[in-house]
Design a protein around this nucleic acid. Structure first.
Length: 595
RNA sequence: GGCUCCGUAGCAUAACUGAAUAGUGCAUCUGACUACGGAUCAGAAGGUUACAGGUUUGAAUCCUGUCGGAGUCACCA
């Protein structure tokens, strides 16, 4: 039970005794006391005035006195306007810390195997170009939210759905056939996804040139766009692919293979992994039979040209196409089929799609369709919609070459970490391999933290030159705090470890603040999981590290003369390092012992 | 144009379900290393929470309107 719930329960009882009515628990508002006031937790009196029929101040005073009398954990209280600030005893807080020390996985829950699992789909790249900054946000969010859910007690399956088919990959294929001279990642030394991406760009160039030529010959621009030879050839390739033409399939497999090798490196450098990967080439036909079934049951309707639609105008949405006139499926058809197949496979209690907010409408429609089809689990589908990542000059545009490449970004961050460490002379005594590992950890920590500390649903601006910092509210700041504590603990090896914390050894308010902050970790994980928001963990970790650094600056640990106080401070530091480590783990960020 | 989301110091952001004087970082200025790690700490300055109304004991938060921005409204994915 959290301290908040503990006080809430006590206050509820006291209020009933005083005023003869048991207040609804939602009226008993308990919050952490703000820094500028004395006390640990605060009760807000305003919602209770209807029961007490007294002024806010008197109500507070009465409740405070009753709590102090009936509850030994309440050491004292003060009243400011309508706020009752309650202080808990040192015995209570010592006991809190002792409980934390005894629990090796404090804040983490074991997965309950009886609960229905959660499926998290994220990443979902196209295979025609390398991953960029937008994908990075997606991957980091998906991976972090998976860990957060896992440690809030859910079984989690991380899945990826690779869009490996369609006109986009055919464009890269035709450009490579015409212009590639048999280039491969081996002959060029290029990462496969980048090589294929280059041909996607070359397609676009060639296409534009052809349009220009056609227009110069007097063709209307719209017609030229539809009739440019290289586009027709790409479309021809798509038809051949769908007809399972062996030569086309072979080329497709080869080029996708290059891309997968490239993706694998990017995922691995980001520390991202999946439990299962799906490919659209294997799922794109799913859903057709469901649509036909829905048609028979009257959920959908067929137009004269035999295309199939659902009318959602009664729900405030539009009509939506489900099958083309030629009977082929569209994107949402596949999603219907995939959702059903996944449900049969996992029997999930929740299915999270980590997809950008430009697809909000799509998922709204998908969910509604599933509901109308009668799947009672349609409410389990959840679109974790995140905002776009913009550059200072606006949206990233591949055609204008303003796309921030994921691989470049990572290596740039690692390089910056190296330069900074060398400048500070931090790792001079480490072996070069060990040092490289630290640069990697710190550079990635900076990048990941920078992206994850922002509320997912908000658009964010990313300035590649200036945005990422290693000071202040950053990943390296938290990593540094951890490394610093580890350093103290290493030096304390010969000191006796604390067995049990005694209340009389806690004698500064900073220490009390720190115990109270660690105590909030489990609730923080819970809130973060419920709201699908890693930023809550990130901000929590920052606050804790900041608070600790103040403590570290103001008080001595190893040099403290009193052995009881010294071992208490060591143990407190140790627990903070642990909580920082676990918080960062939830974000997918490692913390070094030295940096 | 319809629908959805967003406007918080120069920049980037926080505020759990409406609660106390709107927190924090970067940048700027000032100070702290004979060190348990200065990738740190302390201080200064910077705000009419886009604007105008309303509801409430109490509004950045809820409602209405205006202005500004983004997304979406494909037989694309």
């Amino acid at each position: 039970m959290s301290t908040e719930q503990f006080i809430q329960g006590k206050a509820q009882g006291v209020i009933e005794d005083l005023y003869g009515v048991k207040p609804d628990i939602s009226l008993v508002q308990i919050q952490k006391t703000r820094k500028e006031f004395e006390g640990d937790y605060t009760l807000v009196a305003f919602p209770l005035l209807k029961m007490s029929k007294k002024s806010p101040e008197i109500t507070c005073r009465e409740i405070g006195e009753a709590l102090a009398k009936s509850c030994p954990e309440v050491k004292g209280f003060n009243v400011v306007k309508g706020f009752l600030n309650i202080s808990l005893s040192l015995e209570y807080w010592a006991n809190v810390l002792n409980t934390i020390i005894a629990n090796k996985e404090f804040g983490f829950k074991q997965a309950n195997s009886n609960d229905k699992p959660v499926v998290v789909e994220f990443s979902s790249p196209n295979t025609n170009k390398p991953l960029h900054l937008g994908h990075v946000r997606n991957n980091l969010l998906g991976f972090s939210i998976s860990r957060i859910l896992e440690k809030s007690g859910k079984r989690v399956y991380k899945v990826n759905l690779v869009n490996d088919r369609g006109i986009h990959i055919c464009k890269s294929m035709i450009a490579w056939l015409k212009l590639g001279n048999g280039e491969t990642p081996e002959t060029t030394g290029k990462k496969g996804d980048h090589l294929v991406g280059d041909y996607y760009v070359r397609f676009d160039k060639e296409y534009k040139a052809e349009i220009g030529n056609l227009v110069a010959q007097g063709m209307a621009e719209d017609e030229a766009k539809a009739k440019a030879p290289i586009l027709l050839q790409a479309q021809e390739l798509l038809r051949k692919w769908e007809a399972k033409d062996p030569e086309t399939i072979a080329l497709w497999s080869k080029m996708n293979g290059w891309v997968y090798d490239g993706f694998e490196k990017t995922y691995s450098s980001l520390g991202i992994s999946f439990d299962k990967t799906y490919y659209e080439s294997q799922t794109y036909l799913l859903g057709k039979s469901v649509v036909n079934d829905g048609l028979n049951r009257g959920v959908f309707k067929q137009k004269d040209d035999s295309s199939v639609w659902i009318d959602l105008t009664a729900d405030g949405l539009d009509e939506k196409l489900l099958l083309r006139a030629d009977g082929t499926s569209v994107y949402i058809t596949q999603d219907i089929g995939t959702a059903i197949e996944r449900f049969n496979e996992f029997k999930f209690g929740e299915h999270i799609y980590v997809v950008g907010n430009e697809q909000e409408y799509h998922f709204q429609v998908l969910k509604l369709i599933m509901k109308k089809l009668g799947y009672d689990w349609s409410d389990a589908l959840y679109h974790l919609s995140y905002g776009m990542v913009q550059l200072p000059e606006g949206k990233m545009k591949s055609r204008e070459g303003t796309v921030v490449d994921a691989d470049d970004l990572v290596s740039e961050m690692v390089n910056t970490a190296r330069e900074m460490a060398e400048e500070l002379g931090k790792l001079d005594d480490l072996e070069s391999e060990e040092a490289s590992q630290v640069y990697q950890t710190v550079g990635l920590g900076a990048l990941k933290y920078f992206i994850l500390k922002v509320d997912p649903k908000k658009n964010m601006t990313f300035n590649p030159k200036e945005s990422i910092d290693f000071n202040g509210n950053t990943g390296p700041f938290i990593q540094y705090t951890h490394a610093r504590i580890r350093s103290v603990l290493r030096k304390a090896d010969n000191l006796a470890p604390a067995i049990t914390i005694k209340p009389e050894n806690i004698n500064t308010s900073k220490e009390l603040d720190l115990i109270q902050m660690i105590n909030l970790f489990p609730e923080t994980v819970g809130i973060s999981a419920e709201s699908h928001n890693p930023a809550i963990i990130a901000n929590y970790a920052y606050e804790l590290a900041k608070e600790y650094n103040q403590f570290y600056h103001d008080f001595q640990i190893l040099k403290e003369a009193n052995p009881g106080i010294r071992s208490f401070r060591l143990e407190l530091s140790h627990q903070i390092a642990e909580v920082l480590k676990r918080s960062m783990w939830l974000l997918g960020i490692d913390v070094p012992d030295k940096m």
